[in-house]
Nucleic acid binder design. Sequence first.
DNA 1: TAGATTGTTAATCGATTAACAATC
DNA 2: TAGATTGTTAATCGATTAACAATC
Lengths: 225, 225
Amino acid sequence: LTKQQVIFFNEVIDFVNVFTMLNTHTVERLVIYNRVLKGLAQKRSKWVTSKEIARKLSKTPAQVRRDLSILGRKGKPGVGYNIEVLINDLDGVLGRNRIWNVAIIGAGNLGKALFSYPGFKREGFKFKAIFDNAPDKVGKKWDSLVIKSSGEIERAVKKGGIDIAVITVPKNSAQGVAEALVKAGIKNILNFAPVMLDLPEDVRVRNTDLSLELENLSCFICNTK
Amino acid sequence: LTKQQVIFFNEVIDFVNVFTMLNTHTVERLVIYNRVLKGLAQKRSKWVTSKEIARKLSKTPAQVRRDLSILGRKGKPGVGYNIEVLINDLDGVLGRNRIWNVAIIGAGNLGKALFSYPGFKREGFKFKAIFDNAPDKVGKKWDSLVIKSSGEIERAVKKGGIDIAVITVPKNSAQGVAEALVKAGIKNILNFAPVMLDLPEDVRVRNTDLSLELENLSCFICNTK
DNA sequence: TAGATTGTTAATCGATTAACAATC
DNA sequence: TAGATTGTTAATCGATTAACAATC
């Protein structure tokens, strides 16, 4: 095999790895690993073992190693993982090495909280548009970004190069807003409204909402002791 | 068997059912079922089938039936489930039939968003205390609730009968605040700060944060096409 | 070399679902 | 009764982990 062929072969393997092993659970953990490692990088030395990461997150070392193996063989037996290398590779897989243009729909408290959340800029999420349909909000500025009317979603998104839309409007407006977004070509939505959106299959939707977690918690309080 | 014995027997069965079948996944789905059913109750008729619920949530009917079976035998073969009965029973298991006293720690945008979220009052979550350590916020009022200094957490929580604490402070203050809460006797924490809290085992912690979801989404955008 | 930790296989554990008798 | 849907079992599917050869 030529050197080029070997490189190509390795790329194919990486691709297949990422494709077959990247399920929801794994990704959720990778995001956390990345966060923990970045914390470690600030205050600590160069190396970390699967055992240490596992202890921090109440996982098993085996799971940590298996999860990290989608990055390729990045560990040194007997030593552990180079923190910097790991962060770099995770950033790559998780999409932290590029800029994501994000639109917020709904300029309420939650929209504002997202907009002013310090972590986002650092992680490459850039807010490029804000929409609301309250006349007293339209035209106002957050930093240097003017709040636009919801009626303008389609036009503004189409020319704006928006990658992800975040819905923070009240329950009853969410479906309508989502449809406008899809019409404008948006394929990725993070929905904070407490409703299940009914959208075409090719639109990726992630639902979270503030009350879901509180309701989960209270159920466990109720039923365990 | 006497009638009393039968009733007792059934209660034991229910108890065991709930205990053995109530895992994280199931609870997360039950919360959603409850929400969907409440939507249905507003605009529709009395009955619903597992098939209908499943379609709405992209699950299988078998899973819906299995999940609902923790409530006991509430369905009518050939007909389906009585929506009202289901909502009532779910409310019971999920803890929606009682009031939960909640404290917010961190009077920023996210704290404000939680405080003014309309769904909470309806679901029985009542905000009883707000804390912040910014001098310009302490003393201010949200509705009729005065924002207290973080230094008062221990005293105020101890006498306030708080069931759940929600942490919405910046990353670096989270661990300290959490420790103060635990000292004050809090056993249930919903943490919105992007750090893993290091707390005693008997404290129930649920982590969500705004960026986690966005990071998850972007990973999937990156790796699928 | 001795000690430690990785990467990965095979075994285990747990969650989902197909299928069907029981029931309305 | 015929048609429909439940509740639940057994089979399947997928995720976690123990264990260990390979490697530093």
